[in-house]
Simulated scan of single mutants.
Amino acid sequence: MKIYSHKPEGYECPFCRIVSGIERPNQGTKQRDIIFHNEYATAFIASKWWPNNKGHVLVIPNQHFENIYELPAEYAAEIHKAAQLVAFAMKDTYKCDEISTRQHNEPAGNQDVWHYHLHVYPRYENDNLYMTKGQQSDPNERPFYGEKLRSWIRENG
Results as ranks from 00 to 15, higher is better:
K2P: 11
I35R: 03
E70N: 01
G10E: 09
G157S: 11
P51K: 11
D92I: 08
Y116M: 09
H56R: 09
P143I: 04
H37F: 14
N126C: 15
I35D: 10
K2R: 08
R154A: 01
N105Y: 05
V113A: 05
M90Q: 07
K54Y: 11
I35M: 07
W114F: 14
R142C: 07
H119V: 05
I99T: 03
Q63P: 01
Y130E: 15
R123D: 14
C16W: 00
P8D: 10
G28K: 02
E12R: 15
A87G: 14
H104D: 01
S47L: 10
A73W: 09
F144Q: 11
Q135W: 07
C16I: 06
E141Y: 04
W152T: 06
V113K: 02
A82F: 02
I79R: 05
F44Q: 06
E141H: 02
R154E: 14
I45P: 08
F65N: 00
S137A: 15
V120P: 10
F65A: 07
I35E: 05
S47A: 13
G55N: 08
E125K: 12
N105H: 09
Y130Q: 13
T42K: 08
R102C: 14
A82W: 01
H117F: 08
V120L: 12
S151C: 06
Q135L: 11
G134P: 01
Q31L: 13
E98K: 13
P107G: 07
K48H: 08
N52S: 06
T29W: 01
A46P: 04
D92A: 12
D33H: 05
Y130R: 03
E74Y: 08
T101C: 13
I3M: 11
A41M: 00
Y75M: 06
P61M: 02
Y145M: 09
A108I: 12
E74H: 11
G109V: 13
Y69V: 12
Y116C: 03
I99V: 09
P72H: 01
L129C: 00
E70D: 12
N126H: 13
E147D: 15
D92M: 11
M131I: 09
A87I: 12
H119L: 10
R102M: 15
H56Q: 14
L118G: 04
L85M: 15
I35Q: 01
K95Y: 11
E125W: 05
D127K: 10
P143T: 13
M131G: 11
V59N: 03
L149T: 06
H80V: 01
R142A: 07
P122S: 14
P143M: 06
A77Y: 10
R32A: 15
I18G: 00
K91L: 15
R150P: 04
E74G: 00
I34V: 13
Y94N: 04
I68E: 05
H64F: 10
Y69S: 11
A108K: 15
L71C: 08
Y75R: 01
D97F: 08
V86D: 06
R123Q: 12
A87D: 00
Y11T: 02
Y116D: 04
N128M: 03
R32I: 10
A76W: 05
N67H: 04
H37R: 15
V86R: 02
N156Q: 14
K7H: 14
N110Q: 07
I60Y: 06
R102Q: 13
M1P: 02
Y121R: 12
